[in-house]
Design a protein around this nucleic acid. Sequence first.
DNA 1: AAGTGGTCTAGACCACAAC
DNA 2: TTGTGGTCTAGACCACTTA
Lengths: 253, 253
Amino acid sequence: MVDADTYWPAELFADLDRTGPVPLYFQVSSRLEAAIHSGAIPAGGRLENEIAIGQRLGLSRPTIRRAIQELVDKGLLVRRRGIGTQVVQGQVTRAVELTSLYEDLKNSSHVPATRVLGHDVVPASEIVAQSLGLSVGDDVVFVRRQRSTDGVPVAVLENYLPLEFADITREQLEEHGLYEIMRARGVTIRVAKQKIGARSARGDEGELLDIDSNGPVLTMERVAFDDSGRACEYGHHCYRPDLYSFETTLVAK
Amino acid sequence: MVDADTYWPAELFADLDRTGPVPLYFQVSSRLEAAIHSGAIPAGGRLENEIAIGQRLGLSRPTIRRAIQELVDKGLLVRRRGIGTQVVQGQVTRAVELTSLYEDLKNSSHVPATRVLGHDVVPASEIVAQSLGLSVGDDVVFVRRQRSTDGVPVAVLENYLPLEFADITREQLEEHGLYEIMRARGVTIRVAKQKIGARSARGDEGELLDIDSNGPVLTMERVAFDDSGRACEYGHHCYRPDLYSFETTLVAK
DNA sequence: AAGTGGTCTAGACCACAAC
DNA sequence: TTGTGGTCTAGACCACTTA
C-alpha cells in the first residue's frame, strides 16, 4: 500500500468531523496543505493514489479528488495521468518574498491606518459610468483615502461607489476597510477584475506617499461585483513600489 | 420549465459529441461562455437550475455542475444557494482595456520581435539558486532579451535556466518564445509564482525601452515549475508601463 | 412549502504512462 | 499488464432563500 516513495501522515487525518458544517473535502485539503507546509510531505514527494487515500479515510473517491483539486488550483500539487500526484517545490517563494521591505513590515506586527482625503457625491465620468453600469453624469460616491502601515504611507486609494452607499460616514472609512463596510450593509464582493500597471506619480501623490513628486508608483484599477453580478465598486489605487507588490500563482489549464 | 426570466439558447447545444476526445463538461462550458459573450444570455440574466439543464441535454447533474463551475472560476457566472446562477456584468472590462495603448497595439496585427542581448553560462547568485533549488555558484544559463512589438520596445527579459538548457541557441531565442523552446524539449510549464511591482529604470533599461533613463518601469519576477513540480525557470522582467499591464480576475472562495 | 445550489456516495469506463 | 488520474452516471441528503 504505502510505497517507499509515497507520503501519507495518517495522524493528521484522525479527527475528521462528519457532523459539523465544514465540508469533508475542505477538512482533507486543509490538513493536506498543512502537511505540505510543515514539510511532513516534502517538496517533490508523491501522494498515494486517490482510491487508496479514500479507503484510508473512509471517503469516496470524488471527495478525495476535490480535496486534491483545491491544492492543485493553489499551485501546491501537480497531477499527471498514469504517474500520480506530487508536491510542487514551492518553498522558494517564501525566500523571494523576504527580500522585499514590504514583507518586513507585514511580518512585524504592523498597524494599518486610514486618512480620508475626500468624501463626496460627484457626477460619474465616462470610465466610472462604464465600470459601474451607469450613465455619464449620474451621481456616484467618491472616496479618496491615504493608507499607512506603521505610520508609513503605502497607498492612495480612489474609489467610486453607487449612490446607495452615500450614507457611509467619514468615521466608518477611517476605522474599517471599504469591503468590510460594504459587507456590513449586506453587499458581498464575489468577483473582481483588476489591471495592474505603473506610471510616474502626479498631482499630490508624491507628497502623500512620501516619495519624489514624479517618482514611480504601482497602480491598480479594479471593478468589483457582488453576489448578484452587479458592479458595485470602481477603484483606482496607487502604491509606493518599494513597500508594495502583487503576488499571484498561475496554474496551466 | 423555462421561466420568463431564465435563459437557455438550446440551439447552441444541439451538437454535443459523446465519442470524441473533448470532455462533455468542456463542450457545455465553452458553448455557454460563447452564449454569454455574444449576449444570447445577457448580463444579469439567470440560468435554469442544474438538474433542468442536465435533463435538457441528457447529461448528469455533476457534469453540468462542472461546466458551470468552470465559468464561475473565470468570473463569468455567480452562484447562490437557494437563488440560482446569474451572469456577471463583465462587459465593462473590455471598455477599460480599450483605454490602454497596449490594447491598441495588441488588437492591430502586431509583429513581435526578440533581440538577444546576452546569452551565457554564469554562476547562480543567491536568489537564483534559491529559486531554482540549486546551490550558490552552481552554473546556470542566463539569457537577456529585448522584446518589441511592431518595432516598439516593450520589455527587457532576464531569465535563468538549469544547465540542461545550455544548448539552446541564439537563433532559437530570436525566433521562438522561451516556453515554446522548453516545450519542444519536453518540458511543460504547469505552475508559475510571480510578483508584480514597479521601480525606476536602471542601467541601460531606459535606453532599451526608449524611455527616460530613470523613468518608471513595471516589473515581474517569476519562478516557473514543470510537470513534476521542479523549478525550471527564474525570470526578472521589466516592461514599459505605457505599453504593458497585467489583468487578472479574482473570485472569492 | 417549494426551489435552489452544496455536498457526498459507489460504482463505471477510459486514456495514458510505466514496466 | 498494471496502475494512475480523467471523466461520467444516477442517485441521495442537506442548507439556504423565497414565498
